[in-house]
Amino acid sequence: MYRIINKRDLTDITKLFEVDAPLVARRAQAGHFVMVRVAECGERIPITIADYDREAGTVTIVVQEAGKTSAWINALEEGDEFVDFVGPLGQVAPMADSGHVVLLGGGFGVAPIHPVARDLKEKGVEVTSIIGARSEDLLIFEDEMARVSDRVLVATDDGSKGTHGFVTDVLDAMIEDGESIDEVIAIGPMPMMEATAKVTRPHGITTWVSMDPIMVDGTGMCGVCRLTVGGEMKFGCVDGPFFDGHQVDFEEAHKRVKMYESEERIAYERYQNNEKVCQRGGGCDG
C-alpha cells in the first residue's frame, strides 16, 4: 500500500498528492509515469509524475477531476492509501544540453512539465515556460514554474490571466517575434499538443509531445496504447510517453482515446450518484 503523506488543493478540481513510494522515488526522473489503482475494483491508470524526493521516498502526482477514477483519487485524504502505485515507467523526458527550450504546460499538464524545467535549468539550458489553463482559477504551479524557468508566460482561454488565448498563441507570437528557439516540449491535453506541433512545424523546431493514450498494464504487455508515429506502430507506455510531435498521427490518437467514452460516462455518473461504489479492498460482486 502506498500512503498519501501530503495532499494540497491546487484548484477546486486539481489536487496534489505526495505519496510514500520509496522504490519509485529512487529511480524516478522527469517524464516518467506511474500506474495507479485506487482500490481492488479500480482501473489501472497512468499518471505522469510531477515531482519526487529520493530522500523522503515520496513521489508527487497532480490529478484533475475528469471522470470516476480521478474524482475518486481526489476524494482521498492524507493517510489514505493507493492499493497500487507502480513505476517509474516510460522513457525519461528528452533533455537538451544547451540552447533555448520552450516548455508548454496546459491545464494540469503544468505539473509534470515542472521537473522537466528544473532539470533543463540545472543543465544550464535557457528555459521559457508557457503555462495555461481555461481560466485563472484553474492555473497551477505558477510560482513553482517561476523558480525553475528563466521566464514564465501565462495564457488563459478566457483572458482572466495573462494572454487571452491558448499557450500556443503565445508560442506563435514568440516565433513571429523572431525569438530563437531550439526545442519545444509540450505536456497537456491532446488538442493543445497537436496545436503546438502545428505551430512549430513550418519552422522546423524540434517538438516533443507527451502522449497520454489509454493503458491497462503500462509495461508493454497489452498494446492498447499503440500510436502511429512516423508511420510506425509505437507503444505509448514503453516507447513513450514523449514522441516527435511532427510525426505523431494525432487524428488516430484522438479517436483511440475515445474508445470507452460512453463507459467512462456511466462510471462517472454512478460514482456521482453514489451507486455501488467499490469499497477499498472489497470485492465487486456485491
Binding site: C41, G42, E43, R44, K68, T69, V216, M259, Y260, E263, E264, I266, A267, R270, K276, C278, C284, D285
Partner: peptide, 10 residues
C-alpha cells in the same frame, strides 16, 4: 463485471 468494476471492455 463493469460497471461494478471500473475497467471496461467493448
Amino acid at each position: 463485471q463493469f460497471p461494478e468494476c471500473d475497467t471496461p471492455v467493448k
